[in-house]
Nucleic acid binder design. Sequence first.
DNA 1: AAGTAAATTTTTTTT
DNA 2: AAATTTACTT
Length: 802
Amino acid sequence: MNDLSKILNTLNDRQAEAVRTTEGPLLVLAGAGSGKTRVITVRIAYLIAEKGVPPHNILAVTFTNKAAAEMRSRVEEILRGERLPSAPLISTFHSLCVRILRQDIEALDEGYTRSFTIYDTDDSQKVIKACIKDLGFDEKSLAPRAVRAAISASKNRGEDHEIYASKVEYGDDKRLKIARIFKLYDERLGRANALDFDDLLLKAVRLLKVSSEVREKYNDRFRYILVDEYQDTNSLQLSLIRSLTEKSSNICVVGDDAQSIYGFRQADIRNILSFEEHFPDAKVILLEQNYRSTQTILDAADAIISNNREQKKKKLWTENPGGERIFYFQAMDGESEARFVVSKISDILYSDRATRVAVLYRTNAQSRLFEEALRRNRIDYNIVGGFSFYERAEIKDIVAYLKLSLNPFDDVALMRVINTPARGIGKTTLDELQRAARAAGGPLWRTIEAVATGEGSSGANVTPRAREALRSFYGTLKKLVEKANAPATGDHPVSDLVTAAIEETGYAGALRAEGTDEAQSRIENLEELVNAAVEYDHQEGNGLRDFIDHAALTSDTDKYDRDAAVTLMTIHAAKGLEFPVVFIVGLEDGVFPHSRSLSEPKDLEEERRLAYVAITRAEKRLYISHAMRRRTFGEEFASEPSQFLNELPLEMIEDVSPGPSWLSYAKGGTGVVRESIVRPPLPPKKAYTGKTYNSADAIAEFFKDRGKNIGQKGGSAPSGTPEAHQTPFDRLKAAGSGVGPEDRPSHAAEGIVPGSYVIHDRYGRGLVLRREGSGDSSKLTVSFPGYGQKKLIEKFAGLRTE
DNA sequence: AAGTAAATTTTTTTT
DNA sequence: AAATTTACTT
């Protein structure tokens, strides 16, 4: 009996069926922790070893490099010892498209050549910014960022600028402008022989549509296709898959609609829900047995997700024991939350050095507090996301030189390095060059060439000094271009080219001359880049182009070290991973769920799925925490517990907060009245300026206020919410404004403190952010979803509390 | 043209 | 609070 059949025997019936169903369309609906990756990897091995499918006929597509790398190594593990004639292609959607386009983009006949450049988000935004400026539009009303997002969304729906323009409604001035920017942007990208991230998909899809020859070629090549995380595919990705499966229809997709969390990238959950319509005669297999988590954790996840309307009913079950309850911690502020998490991590690592812990947050910005706390305690950690190696300025500079050496028409790269290091080519000169290039309708490089060589008319009027500087820059770059394009016989290794870009451009020289610590660390980073190139030369050695593509398409997520004891990352980045111990932090309304998701029920459901993903990462133990106050943009705000907390059954939560907490309130309402229930109202934000309850003064203040409230007889319960029928959420919310249900004042006005909600006749429900003044002249700043922040005179606004 | 001070912005989530 | 962009000197 060989290894593979041994492995097959360890699979459950459903999993084995998914592996053995190799022909025709197959949808595997795989719940969290149901052994999805195992099924995919064993299936690939099965196709090769059992069915005799040549490996290069197999394509597996993932969303992230991390997932692709993981899959590759696990397939290798299973097939260890087998001698294979070729390797299956396991790739992300984006690298697959790059691969196709590098081969065949010329068949698209849109003027692009195989040496096209890839623009990252940053590059695109620069082009868009320039477009806005050149069209004479106002940057205030048309933020480059927002325009980029609109264009990207359009492209991900498979719509180019013409379709976008055709959908603009009459009189919609803003979209009309965006349509014009969109058009100009695409023209400029075309002229620079550049594709943005979205174009990679868009053009590949179009190429397969336009050229039956190319389509046939890849249909013949990829006879067995697998797609991971299918619930996250968008319409472009669906088109791509459909084009590639015209002949074989051996398409296996794996996913979980409950884990669809990329709607913001136009992922369309209907792709997985309608798979059987898109691919007739599809077979569907459900994987519902969870091997990862305790029953408690699954129950918690189920409790959250069952608040969603849109979902395919699935019931996860496990043979694992019930396990511990979920630990809950309420922190005073973000810092104390981080201290709690780190002290727990410290305990956990002390008792079991081999365990792995993850801290999961909604946004990257939240990582800082945890990093600081971990560093203070000298605990090593691994952070995923945020700033990646390839995003560092010095790395991007050198990569820009390298990109230019392959495609000098890349205007963005050219502008990036033309005066980096400083060569005396200033703003005046650059403006003039850009103007001239635009007038000539050609790339910047041509204009510079004309100025530097004196051949032809550049149309640019530059000072003699600038001309001299340009001549020298032109010479430097020209040499780099020649080196990169040297014939294969005298081939330069990539590392040589990288070194040349660092040294011969004067880049390293300028840094050394600086002599600061920062410059030193930049030099070290560049050394690391050279090391990466040396490594690359040893391993793959597919030339400079591949190296640069790799840099463009690699996010830091594949730097993820699966053996690290402590990992910090966003919930998005954690998808597909599992950890014995998980901390979900920042469970506050506005943070998680994110404030931008509160107004649309659709968005809120996606946040809920995100919560589901977060919870189901945990194997044995789960901590959830939130802070009462949090600093954002340097200002401190009162924050409320996340509504998701209220969706958890209280009996499965264990409170480990030091004093009374929201949870005590919530539980108190179920019959147990604790003495410590009464808390002071949260003072208006102003009273805090600079102070925290850590300082002695503030603690004194705390007790002073506390004394006032104890024994105070509360008024009637808020209208429409009889106490007996309060939901846990209502109870928590009452606590959220620092006012227990018993203590709520009868007059609405006095209940309006920052952090509480009010109802306005016109704007509806809003969150009170700030209160200024008192009595008749008091003003409130209230944030109304859909209307923004409003400043209201309390006396005239006619506000009601809930 | 380059360096400094002041003003403005930043936080979803990712290839 | 930190980082980035713009406006002002030299």
